[in-house]
Design a protein around this nucleic acid. Structure first.
Lengths: 115, 115
DNA sequence: AATTATACATAAGTTTATTATGCATATTGA
DNA sequence: TCAATATGCATAATAAACTTATGTATAATT
């Protein structure tokens, strides 16, 4: 069984990561992309997704851009100018954190910094 | 800067991991061990630690054993009989989850800095 | 025609963590 | 020696994040 427990706190970083790569994404697309990347194991629910997206907009990291496809709104989220800077920093931090988890839970031999 | 954000949800698994290795541990010892293992980067606060420990006892995974050192109580936590089984399963799940994070955030292949 | 997929969003309740506080003993350094 | 730090437990108020449920609506598929 796969535990989603440890994935708490990863939604916002994950959104930033994906949008940073794709340029822009809309909510539903994000849920599908994550499902795909995780082999259907991670399902981001709307109750988690939309508040997270709105928070990122509030924080000034993301901005929106609406597009109408037929009669349906598609609300794209993209990095703001300052958000582009923030994204780089945040992604660095996140990677460091994940490597910390890898280390704490012994998922690789210790890396000896021979400098 | 190190982000503790992504570490949410890892306290209980981490406790299980450490106690599984050490046999038994007491609260304060856990905080120190985590600090040490993380090069002082992760500080588990009491407000997070004790409720987590109590929860694990409630769940039947841990049991306690008090010891008096001088006039001070030292409350050891160890895996219950059934907890030993649970620990193996939980640790498997956690490792799978961390590997998922590694995959999602493109941390694979791991870079070894041998300078 | 009904079901599933696409697409947004919020609200109630739960879980988990942060920050603050509280109590008490032991050790260390100025 | 005595003040500060370390050891050791714990809870309470608050905040943050997530789950589950609900709501609305259009598009596509069977």
């Amino acid at each position: 069984m796969f535990s989603q427990e440890i994935l708490k706190g990863t939604i916002k970083p994950l959104i930033i990561k994906l949008i940073n790569e794709e340029g822009k994404m809309y909510g539903y697309q994000i849920t599908q992309k994550v499902k795909e990347l995780s082999s259907q194991k991670i399902v981001i629910t709307e109750g988690a997704l939309y508040p997270a997206l709105h928070k990122l907009v509030e924080e000034g990291i993301l901005v929106t851009e609406s597009e109408w496809v037929g009669n349906r709104e598609r609300k794209y989220y993209l990095l703001s100018e300052s958000g582009k800077q923030t994204a780089v920093t945040k992604l660095e931090e996140i990677k460091e954190s994940i490597l910390m988890l890898v280390q704490l839970f012994d998922l690789k031999p210790l890396v000896y910094d021979v400098k």
